[in-house]
Design a protein around this nucleic acid. Sequence first.
DNA 1: GGCCATTAGTTGCTTTATGCCACTATTATG
DNA 2: CATAATAGTGGCATAAAGCAACTAATGGCC
Lengths: 248, 248
Amino acid sequence: MSTSTPNLEEAAFLRHYDPALYDRPSFSVDLVIFTAHEAQLQVLLVKRGAHPYKGCWALPGGFLDLHRDSTLQACAERKLLEKTGVKAPYLEQLRTYGSRDRDPRHWTATAAYFALIAAPAVHLGGGPDAVRWAPVCDRAVADPLAFDHATILADAIERLRAKLEYTHIAVHLLPEEFTLPQLQQVYEIILQQPLDKSSFRRRVAEADMLEPVARQSRNGSGRPAQFYRFRDYDRRTFFPRSISRNAR
Amino acid sequence: MSTSTPNLEEAAFLRHYDPALYDRPSFSVDLVIFTAHEAQLQVLLVKRGAHPYKGCWALPGGFLDLHRDSTLQACAERKLLEKTGVKAPYLEQLRTYGSRDRDPRHWTATAAYFALIAAPAVHLGGGPDAVRWAPVCDRAVADPLAFDHATILADAIERLRAKLEYTHIAVHLLPEEFTLPQLQQVYEIILQQPLDKSSFRRRVAEADMLEPVARQSRNGSGRPAQFYRFRDYDRRTFFPRSISRNAR
DNA sequence: GGCCATTAGTTGCTTTATGCCACTATTATG
DNA sequence: CATAATAGTGGCATAAAGCAACTAATGGCC
């Protein structure tokens, strides 16, 4: 990214030569990387090292590399790998934010993606940037975010909540093998309301998404819980009803 | 839009001058404009007058104008107005498609929007382009479409179907005043299955979205139907359950 | 006018899903 | 061996959805 102002004479020439070439917004990809950890939904933030918003926390991201990235999705996958060192089990485009005002320098657009990863999978601190997990509380994090990243984050949380109702993406916030109480806790963390155990289990059973594995938890006192594995990561099936109807 | 190939020497200079300026994909906005007409879901297509895909049907759209459009949404609104002459009651971003391959010339990205308008509202044939409504059958139209527009269309239909289940956007496919049988027909057209009249009306009544107006239909034989008006275009309320559960 | 076809709109019963709460099961701990 | 703690099941009251028969209001036709 450059902070120099365009040479207007040159720009005018280029515009004449090929209008489509010059009339392009600066285009980047930003990531909203979620994990569920310690009874909280958390999002990965990086501290900006350059102006504008220098020193401010922001969503990880960066500009497209037209030579390396053959698709937008590939660019998002590359940046995710660079930031977290893992290939996320779930990565989905959120939407694209484009306006003259979102960056004080010029017209910019950013394609926002959101990713779900299991908390233990990530080892931060690889690069020189300051990186941290920030707990999400009521559609936002405690710190102010650069650009329109607070809006992007709020939209991502809304999308995540909505998709929890009719898809099984919650499993991607857990390790490959997990228990039903763990899964229910993920739902409760994200929907921010307690769910009825009996109804929750009935619904999960009806969806027929999980297969038991020969393993049981040993978490201190109490009856050990059965571990399960998500049956088919490719299949996109739906709950017959909204799961938040199981609220108590 | 230009079909000339970039001057590589010049491009290299510009890249040196401002890497962020040159490393940008060509960026456009495409529209999926839906209407419900004659018991079919229809989508607006234009015939391409330039290469590539010259003579092929395509979704309407075009490049951003960084001087006129302050946001992506504004650009979509402008193009919609240019194509249809109306301000659509519903316009929503679908997603952005970007890859090296979708245009044979170079790396391109397009932000796709979908719009819903009432059939009688539109008067086509304003511009020199060939424009037509194409009936949608099973997530596609009869003709092959330019670029990846068939994919975009399929995604738009999927989004429309999904949103029909939990929002009231269907009303935007009808004139301001409409009858319940008309509304039910819109649902049946898009979901492609007959719905139970009694359950449908019960659900619409529970949602409390419509207010009756002092007007009745005179459509040939049969009892005249009550007209209604959508109560609040701004409010985003939801059906408590998926409406397609009313399938017979 | 009277009958019929046609479409709009209502009612009530049956079936299914959900909310709720109590119950059993299996472990650790003292 | 009792108790606390967590996992998991069962049953019943209530609410919603499916289904089909019913009434209502219009135009067309004799």
